[in-house]
Amino acid sequence: MKRHFLKSIAAAAVAMTGFALPTFASAADITGAGATFPYPMYAKWAEVYKKETGVGLNYQSIGSSGGIKQIRAKTVTFGATDAPLKGEELDKDGMVQFPAIIGGTVPVINLEGFKPGELRVTGPVLADMFMGKITKWNDAKLAALNPGKNLPDQSITIVHRADGSGTTFNWTDYLSAVSKEWADKVGKGAAVKWPADSSVGGKGNEGVAANVNRVKGALGYVEYAYVKKNNMNFMQLQNKDGKYVSPDDSTFAAAAAGVDWFSVPGMGVSMVDAKGANSWPVTTASFILMYKSPEDKAASQEAQKFFAWAFKNGKKLALDLDYVPLPDAVTTQIQSKVWSQIK
């Protein structure tokens, strides 16, 4: 069933050149733009919502930085970002921010002879690979983590996002948490200067996935739905409790358990390197940006109706795509504490 959904989304993406629905939106349709991380989920929600209500969602999957630019330019009803804005930015822009869905970012590889999840890596070793300090797949540090595995004498090519990306923010947030050298020399952000000599960029999660599948010996990072959609190989990752885990909705949910969403202005909580034996270390939420005083109040109300429907009716659709829906208690608080600020 999951594979069927993902194939449907992939076909829709090709047919519609990256949009969840055709670009000739009617007056009643909702417009949004931004993160590619949640695009498969928004596409599926939009498909079902359109059938039930007749209202469409025209969502441009252009990356988090693009989504922030579009909402600030007031060309869309909502922006979507995996790199949450800080409280002072939200106050300056007159916007609210809330999480819509939870997922995970995954280290993906193109290495023949290994099954998905067969190879293991720790956070510090992964940071060394992205730093360009580890340049071969048979490096002693990787071999020590994978005893008995015949690792090839093959060069590692780093594949990263070429556009401003919340997935990159999430990924570099994690690398900064597990490697002081990464934190000091590269840091975290939607766009960073990639230090590895052998590297190539790709636009969107789609572009990174395509380049990893194209380049032998590649190592990149994408949201898990793209792993499933593109039948990609991935590495198990050691979490904060020292356990090696694979990415799926259960390990993402474990990382998100107990999050105090309102401990940070704009609900922009970081979940990377979370405690818990079953926690996936690179788990994140994807966020929605909307104006407190929107120019098109009717469109803003339609967007709220869409997300209210998704929060209530879209849970199974989310799980089918290996995303994690927000708990009812959180969505109730979003509607009472956040949406109440939208006039």
Rank of each mutant, 00 (worst) to 15 (best):
H4N: 05
L6E: 00
L6T: 02
A11I: 07
A12S: 13
V14Y: 08
I30T: 05
A35R: 02
E47D: 14
G54F: 11
Y59V: 01
Y59M: 13
G67P: 09
I71A: 10
K86T: 12
F98W: 08
P99F: 04
V106I: 15
E112G: 07
G117F: 13
L119K: 08
G123I: 04
L126C: 00
A143E: 12
L145Q: 09
N150A: 15
Q154E: 14
Q154A: 12
S155P: 01
I156F: 03
A162R: 08
N170Y: 02
D173H: 12
W182R: 09
V186C: 10
K203W: 11
G204K: 05
A209S: 15
N213E: 05
G217M: 09
A218F: 10
G220N: 10
E223A: 15
Y224Q: 09
A225F: 04
Y226I: 02
K228G: 02
M232N: 11
M235I: 09
M235G: 05
Q236T: 06
K240E: 01
D241N: 13
V245C: 05
P247M: 14
D248G: 10
F252G: 00
V264Y: 03
G268D: 09
D273Y: 02
P281C: 09
L289P: 00
S293V: 15
E295N: 13
E295C: 05
A298E: 15
F306V: 01
A308D: 12
A310S: 14
A310M: 08
A318Q: 07
L319F: 01
D328V: 07
D328Y: 03
V330Y: 04
Q333F: 08
K343A: 15
